[in-house]
Design a protein around this nucleic acid. Structure first.
Lengths: 231, 231
DNA sequence: CGGTCGGTTGAAGCTAATCAATTAGAGTGG
DNA sequence: CCACTCTAATTGATTAGCTTCAACCGACCG
């Protein structure tokens, strides 16, 4: 990367308070790239190799599910993106695409994690915890933007079923009113959604649910690792 | 707090790797509390005084807007909540209420921040950055769960107007297709929403928007500091 | 026994998505 | 320069999804 960009980067909130050697180490590994518009910088589901910092231009963050796509966020300079995936050494929950010609600083993920490890353990634990919270909300947000209410319910049932040992039965861990609110439905609509799912082998006895046709249910639900399976 | 709980807490991912003196310091300040069901632990809009860690029971995280309420998340043991607000020394974006009798460890926010400051600067900068990302998605999520599409558009316009100097005019920073996706609307529906807003003094000329009746628009939009105003 | 609460059902209405058609502007290539 | 194509944006008609309002049921509780 070019010497001339260094002071600008050093001034960023994220790097301002960092020790000189750590900063040097990071920057030796990092590089500045200029991309034209409409370039796919990262793709959902891939591992996070770099932390991206947008210096100039515009980058859109996108989520997809079952050939639907939605804009999750728009990044403007100066902003980082996909920090959480880098910290967790996890897979991207969103894709990123340049919307204009953009200048981007790319810092290899392993260097970020190295330097973080040298720093305080507690601070590091905090970042991991926080990354987890962040990613959970992103998943929720995608869930809401990209699925109908019946799909959300179906996937929730599949998730609970899994978590409870996949015995063909599950018990709702909260009352239906709460479940409805969590899935952004009215209680009435939840009740109807359960009726809709009867055709897919779902039978309801108060808070006990039986799933008789997992294949069919999954065909409807289209479970998606980048939305559903926390952890 | 009781001696007997200490090993259990120490084993949590968040505290496992922490130095002995730091842990002791935190725990001296912290205390364990048992609450009955249906107790409001924190309220939207208040400052974050404590980091909460749920040890037993269940806590619901709630968001509200214009006398609507929604369940944002359900916390089960062992889990932290409102970490981001604590790190940013900011106001809560969600309320928290016990759903069952719950045992909760409360760590004063200032102690968390003190210990974090002693640890590496970079790790600390990362947590702040990440908290910001997290809170942004929470805001987006509330926006989507608690407002209609016309309300979302109206608030977006108010926000852009503000950001551009509140001159009575604003320029859309992205094309309408992107704006629609960001607001979770179809382009057709966005176009109709703009028509609906004509009655509230909004006139559209390509990407240039004029707001002639801020009072009326705000009455419709009901802007909410806990959803809209980033930073 | 009346009261409340969680849940279900039906009817009506509203919000938003879909499908189809049209216009206007930008860019391409003969 | 003029057709040609592409795309963004708008409009209308229709349909799907969801909410709202109202009534009702059964369980639990005083």
């Amino acid at each position: 990367m070019r010497e001339h960009d260094l002071p600008e980067i050093r001034a960023l909130e994220l790097f301002r308070t960092m020790s000189e050697p750590s900063f040097d180490e990071l920057m030796r590994a990092a590089y500045m790239q200029t991309f034209p518009a409409q370039v796919q910088l990262i793709s959902e589901g891939e591992l996070a190799d770099f932390l991206f910092i947008l210096i100039e231009g515009r980058v859109d963050l996108l989520g997809t599910n079952a050939n639907r796509e939605t804009t999750m966020a728009i990044i403007k300079p100066v902003g980082t993106f996909i920090l959480a995936a880098v910290l967790k050494d996890a897979v991207h929950l969103m894709s990123a695409r340049t919307a204009e010609k953009s200048r981007v600083l790319m810092v290899p993920a392993c260097n970020i994690r190295d330097i973080l490890a040298k720093d305080g353990d507690f601070a590091r634990a905090i970042t991991i915890e926080l990354s987890g919270c962040y990613r959970a909300v992103v998943r929720d947000h995608k869930n809401l933007k990209l699925r109908s209410s019946v799909e959300r319910l179906a996937n929730r049932l599949i998730g609970l079923h899994q978590a409870q040992g996949a015995t063909g039965e599950l018990v709702l861990p909260y009352d239906k009113k709460t479940l409805a609110s969590l899935l952004n439905m009215t209680p009435e609509n939840l009740s109807r959604a359960f009726n809709t799912l009867k055709a897919y082998g779902v039978s309801v006895d108060n808070d006990r649910i039986a799933l008789a046709d997992m294949r069919g249910l999954e065909t409807l639900a289209k479970p998606n690792q980048l939305i559903d399976w926390r952890l």
